[in-house]
Design a protein around this nucleic acid. Structure first.
Lengths: 161, 161
DNA sequence: TCAAATTTGTATGCAACACATACTAATATC
DNA sequence: GATATTAGTATGTGTTGCATACAAATTTGA
C-alpha cells in the first residue's frame, strides 16, 4: 500500500531523516543512533517486502527453520532473543499462512518440530531475492572494511563478548 | 518486575544471546545484526528504566521537547522518523502522566507547542542519571575510535549520507 | 520409585507502536 | 476567494513484547 502513499517522495537518496530539531543529548546516546538506524532499515525492509507481507522477524523465523529443520519454538525464541509467547504468535501467523508446519516430536512429546512447507520454501526463495536488493542499498554505503567493523561492533553489543 | 524474573541469570557477562541454532544466511544480513543489537540495548534500557516506566521513544520525545521547547508534534515525528498518529499517541501518554503539556501557538493556531512540565523536568533529570549507567555498559565494550566509527556508520545508515 | 521441579507448548490479556484513513480547523497559495 | 496544504485529532488494524497461568511430558533427586 506504500505504492501510492503521499510520503513516497522517498525514491532516491534524498530522505531527510533528521530534519529540524536539535537532538541535543540524544546525539550522545549509542542507543539512539542504533534505534534510528534500525528504524531506517526496518522501513526499507517493510517496503521491499510489501508484496510478500513478511516482516523482519517472520523472515528470521523462516530462515532459522529452513536452516535448522525440526527446531522447536523455544530454540527459535532463544536464538532471536524473544520469549515463548511472542514466538508462539509469530509461528501461528506463519503456520496460518501455510509457510511453516508443526510436527509432534517422537523423542520428546512436548516438542513440536518446525518445518517449512513447500509454500514456505517457495516464499523464502522469493523473499531472498528481494532481500538481496534491500541489503545492497545499505551495504553500498560502506567499504568492505567499514562493513566488517560495523558487523563486529554490532555482534559485540548483543553477544556481550 | 524484571527484578525477580526467572531468566535473570543475566548478571555478569555470560549472556548466551545466540545459543543453539545456526543463523545461516541471516548472519550475512546487516539488518539482522542491527536488529539483534537493537533488541539487546532496548532490553537493557527497559530494565534500567523500569522504575520510571519510560520507553526509549518516550525518553527521546522528552529530550527533544526539553531541547526544543515549543516544538510541535510534527517536528518530533519528523525528527524521530515516525508519523503524526504515532507521535500523537506518544505525546498523549506523556501528557497524561503530566510530563508534557500542549500550549496553543499564537502565531499558528493549528499548532500546539510542546513543553515539559515541572514534573517532566524532574523525571528527565532522574532518567538521565539512569541512562548514563545504561550507556556506559555498552560504551565500555569499545575503544574511543571504535565507538566513533560505529556512530558514524549508524548515522550513515539513517541519514543516507 | 515416586513426588517435585522443569520444560514445552498453549491461551489470554495488556501495553506500546507503526501505519492507514478520514475529518476539522487553520493557514498558505494561486 | 477557491483550492491546496498543514497540524492536530480520532479510530481501527496488525505486529510485537511481555506477564501470567495452565496442561502435558520429561527430568531430577530424595
Amino acid at each position: 500500500m506504500a505504492t501510492k502513499s503521499p510520503q513516497d517522495d522517498f525514491e532516491g537518496e534524498d530522505a531527510p531523516a533528521t530534519p529540524g530539531l536539535d537532538v541535543g543529548r540524544l546525539g550522545d546516546l549509542l542507543g539512539f543512533h542504533l534505534r534510528m538506524a534500525h528504524v531506517a532499515i526496518y522501513r526499507d525492509f517493510a517496503e521491499t517486502m510489501e508484496e510478500l507481507a513478511l516482516t523482519q522477524k517472520q523472515l528470521a523465523v523462516m530462515e532459522l527453520v529452513a536452516g535448522n529443520p525440526g527446531a522447536s519454538q523455544i530454540d527459535l525464541a532463544n536464538t532471536l532473543g524473544t520469549d515463548r509467547a511472542t514466538m508462539m504468535a509469530l509461528v501461528n501467523r506463519l503456520a496460518a499462512r501455510d509457510f511453516i508446519e508443526r510436527r509432534p516430536s517422537e523423542a520428546d512429546r512436548r516438542r513440536q518440530e518446525l518445518h517449512l512447507t513447500k509454500a514456505g520454501h517457495a516464499m523464502l526463495a522469493r523473499a531472498r531475492e528481494l532481500i538481496d536488493k534491500h541489503e545492497q542499498r545499505f551495504i553500498d554505503l560502506f567499504s568492505r572494511d567499514e562493513l566488517d567493523a560495523l558487523l563486529t561492533a554490532l555482534k559485540r553489543i548483543y553477544k556481550g563478548n
